[in-house]
Write a protein that binds this DNA or RNA. Structure first.
Lengths: 241, 241
DNA sequence: GTCTATATCAAGATAGAC
DNA sequence: GTCTATCTTGATATAGAC
């Protein structure tokens, strides 16, 4: 609406700029606070104080406590997953993906202790509010497609492209990541850094072994659903013995 | 207090018996209510009403809201995991573990919709209360040992015993189960019933392929963890920290 | 746009009736 | 041992000052 905002932020802090800054600070504080105490367990006063503001700032920028959480979910849910996918892409690019995936797990678990609880809060909130579950699913669709194509390349790399839909491998990879992250908080010793990368290696090796029997080429299923989600992933591998 | 309670409950509802019955009803109602609305989001009045009692009954049997939740955690955390492990054992016993693991996933996801949210609540509560995290870890140690020996047998079955610690495979299996369970709630189409069983099959096949090269034993991967063929690993949980 | 003060209400917990 | 009534606190949300 106001055409004055076409200058890069240089000297004069625009009204809309300070508001955007306050908004970001509040969202960051909300992420920390909701991760630490939970959505229902944390008060908006705690969030506001964590950001260095008072209650009024929250209600000025967001309408209610729920809206604040939903805005946070929309910003963070996709951001976090895309970050994980990007690191997975780097892991794939290098010769040995194991240490890269290990760093991914270690960073998400130890360096950012609020990540996993916040993800759990998002999931619980979405489960309890069906309309927002759809929103969460949509937010995750983009990063998930990236992960899917990444897994497709990984399948090609082990010579198992087409034998198994990349969709299934992407789901497994994501489930493994989140599950190991949670388990590491309960018992860190049981989830060493390398476990995620090793599991993915074993998984891909197993797919390769199941698809092509003992190195004999010839994928029995040349159908390769590239980007569309294929619910009929019940394509069972040939018996390996 | 009264030593009259050594009779089997036949005709006279003992004072301690009715109290135990109330306790169980309250715990069941607490499980449902906390799963549906969360620990902080649900009031003790809701729990009491869901059980058919009033607030006083809760405070008579449990001291506080927190104690009620902790008692529920101690009862349910181990029960649920042991149930999953038992079904996995059945899956292992049969010729084709894929459909059995599929039923496990489908049952936990669809037939008992409160299971996954309650597990998430347990985890979040434990993460936020370090002393209870130790309790949760201890509760899970028993069922986890069973799962570990089960995975040891699975490794033997594919001829990869000793190449990889069963401990790691158990961790991966559990992470997969919980991760797929969560993902199924967000997008059911992306997690078909057979996915868990297939992932486990691929994983074991990959371990067999990586560990024993065409039947020759010996770990060939330098980045593999210390390959300890310790069959007593199931009986002996690792020392913490 | 942000803060202070406050209205309103719900929830945890307790005391005494039955 | 369980219920009813109540105390007390803390939290959401709002209204007006600066």
């Amino acid at each position: 609406m106001s055409p004055d905002a076409d200058h890069p932020p240089k000297r004069r802090p625009t009204r809309a700029e300070t508001k955007a800054r306050t908004r970001r600070l509040l969202l960051d504080a909300a992420a920390r606070t909701y991760a630490r105490k939970g959505f229902a367990g944390a008060s908006v006063e705690e969030v506001a104080e964590a950001a260095g503001f008072s209650i009024g700032a929250v209600y000025s920028n967001f309408g209610s406590k729920e809206r604040l959480f939903v805005e946070l979910l929309k910003e963070r849910a996709s951001e976090q997953v895309s970050r994980a996918t990007r690191i997975m892409a780097d892991a794939q690019a290098g010769d040995d993906p194991v240490p890269a995936l290990g760093r991914l797990l270690a960073n998400a678990a130890d360096k950012d202790p609020d990540f996993a609880p916040l993800q759990a809060e998002f999931w619980l909130y979405a489960v309890r509010n069906p309309p927002l579950m759809e929103t969460l699913a949509e937010e995750l669709r983009g990063p998930r497609a990236e992960l899917e194509s990444l897994m497709g390349k990984a399948l090609e790399h082990v010579g198992a492209a087409g034998s198994v839909p990349a969709d299934a491998v992407a789901t497994i990879a994501m489930a493994l990541f989140q599950g190991l992250l949670r388990q590491r908080r309960i018992d860190p010793a049981s989830v060493p850094d390398e476990l995620l990368g090793q599991a993915m290696q074993w998984l891909l090796a197993g797919i390769a072994a199941s698809g092509t029997t003992s190195g004999a080429p010839g994928p029995a299923h040349p159908d390769a659903p590239a980007a569309t989600d294929d619910p009929a992933a019940a394509d069972r591998p040939e018996e390996n013995r």
